[in-house]
């Protein structure tokens, strides 16, 4: 767990560094979008550090596509 926290901290430090590099060039829309991405990253960082299986991108895409995908798979393997 400690190692995961250290890696996460390093990642965010890199993000802060690049934020300052591009600071002047961002308008309001860019800023809002940037913060949106950071918020999603925050949730994922929590999932990563805790090591638990929580709702994720693949689960989101599984909702509409898992059944047809398995039907095709079953056809080929039957």
């Amino acid at each position: 767990m400690i190692e995961r926290i250290i890696v996460t901290v390093v990642m965010y430090l890199l993000l802060v560094y690049t934020w300052f590099l591009d600071k002047e060039k961002k308008n309001r829309k860019d800023f809002m979008f940037y913060m949106g991405l950071v918020c999603i990253s925050g949730y994922l960082s929590f999932v990563f550090i805790s090591g638990k299986a929580m709702f994720n991108l693949d689960d989101l895409l599984d909702i509409p596509f898992e059944r047809p995908a398995r039907m095709i798979f079953n056809y080929f393997t039957s």
């Binding site: 934020w19 860019d30 990253s41 960082s45 999932v47 929580m54």
Partner: peptide, 22 residues
């Protein structure tokens, strides 16, 4: 979005976190 370069690292971070948690 006006500054392409600024979004590389947050998107990289997102991909990294998806790769470790998905």
């Amino acid at each position: 979005l006006s500054n392409k370069r600024a979004f590389v690292f947050p998107l990289g971070l997102l991909v990294y976190l998806f790769s470790t948690t998905s």
